[in-house]
Design a binder for these strands. Structure first.
Lengths: 181, 181
DNA sequence: ACTTTAATATGATCGCTATCATAATAGTGT
DNA sequence: ACACTATTATGATAGCGATCATATTAAAGT
């Protein structure tokens, strides 16, 4: 059955939103096209009217996720607290796209990697502007280092099995970062 | 056909070595049991004489990889240089197991996560002992923060598509880490 | 209103992979 | 030597997922 052009755009938006959420939660491979479409309230066959392939969907889902996360920021210390919180660790589906998918995207085709690259670049830029004025000369370096440490700590905390060690990784990394700020 | 007990142990060792290498290179999902066995010079059917399942193999492969990487260390600056080098970035198959698989292991069953947790714990401990004496009071914190930053930078550098940005992430993170050491 | 066209639904196909049953073969112990 | 047993090889099965052909339905345009 046919739907309004507006409805179709809305459908596409929902496909992207659900795909982005599911990919972050379960990884690219564990989520099938059928599951994404079902989550969006559609059947699997219609998928190829919206996207050329699952690879194509990955790229657009990354782009979509990176684009919608522009709000937050605020000041840097609060951002770090939230990013390195147990709540964020326990919610990959609603959390940072890069932390959830950056390692995986290494194994994906060009388009997905390009979308991820753009997202990483803009995230670094956002961090640069959020840095306090104390980092006059080396904002760029500070932004990259800080970002790498945040992301690494979150990935480690999510990989680890023992809650106490996981909490420790988050808390110690957080404290380490302000030790010399 | 039957083989010597020693030959069998050797076969198992080769299965683990090849699995570890292939998993790091292509990720768990992209590597099938048949491919691992073929790489080890055996046929796919014999696999279940060595391991209970592919999940079982993952756990043992992680353990195997973490155990064999005990050598290196040396002093910390050299280790950081090597870890954050383009050569290491471009060789996931021969490189750090955690950087290659930590993000993926979040989605795997207990056994694999437990093996990864042990590996991470021992890596942190090794970093603690490698730290210069200057970090008397807070070796633990410094080790965790440093490790998170290393790992995060390597994952980002591998995710990114543009060589210049990738190189930059490695080099800037490396410089950032000694800025206050 | 009526035709055309575009979006979704249904169902099938194809290939891949983990797993396992069975056969074949050669160590191991007596 | 011989029986026994353990390891590997061969081949089959079952299920899953991406993709696509076709049908259906309703929006768009006249």
């Amino acid at each position: 059955m046919r739907v309004t052009q507006e409805q179709m755009r809305e459908n596409r938006r929902r496909i992207l939103a659900e795909a982005s959420r599911l990919f972050r939660e379960k990884g690219f491979d564990a989520v099938g096209v059928a599951e994404v479409m079902k989550a969006a309230g559609l059947t699997h066959g219609g998928f190829y009217g919206h996207f050329a392939s699952k690879d194509d969907l990955m790229a657009h889902a990354i782009e979509h996720a990176a684009a919608e996360k522009v709000g937050s920021a605020g000041n840097l210390p609060d951002f770090l607290d939230a990013y390195l919180s147990p709540a964020h660790r326990d919610d990959p589906a609603g959390g940072c796209t890069m932390a959830a998918l950056a390692a995986d995207v290494r194994l994906r085709p060009e388009a997905a990697r390009a979308a991820m690259t753009a997202g990483i670049r803009s995230q670094i830029a956002r961090m640069e502007t959020a840095l306090p004025d104390a980092f006059a000369g080396n904002r760029h370096r500070e932004a990259i280092g800080t970002y790498a440490a945040m992301l690494g700590a979150l990935i480690l905390a999510r990989a680890v099995d023992e809650p106490s060690l996981s909490d420790e990784i988050l808390a110690e990394t957080r404290a380490w970062m302000t030790a010399d700020m």
